[in-house]
Amino acid sequence: MSAGLILRYVIIAIIYIILFRIVRIMYLDLKGIRSDDERKDITYALEVIDVPGSIGIARGSLYPVHKLTSIGRKADNSITLNDPYVSSYHAQIYIENDGLFIKDLNSTNGTIKNGIRIKGVERLQSGDVIEIGRTSFKVVE
């Protein structure tokens, strides 16, 4: 009888321990989201400065870069370039520690920054010009 009574409280206590643990993790997670938001205050965008008509994007259009922008020929990229000179997953542009970086994903024809083909990861600055296949982007802030 009394053992049952104690168990009654033990059971409820454990249920709450589980709840609090879950809540705690979610709280940490929520803090993560918030800091993401803060970082978003510095936003970069890619402006299309030169593009052939067949590729499917318009000259002058702006692509905001949030966390990670992927560029490639496949439809599930953030920016899809319908261009045979572009690889399926060509390059990624991402923000890390408030800096903007570009990474070439071993594309066949390479990624050109300010006229020089990049190797691996390079930092981007506002005003840099990137060429991917037949399309040119300018980094704007």
Binding site: G4, L7, V10, I11, I14, I15, I18, R21, I22, I25
Partner: peptide, 23 residues
Amino acid sequence: MEKYEKSILKAIYTVTMLMFLVL
């Protein structure tokens, strides 16, 4: 994170078995 997950799961197993034990 993974450590937490495991401890939460363990707590769930414990309380479930405890309840079934009472039953």
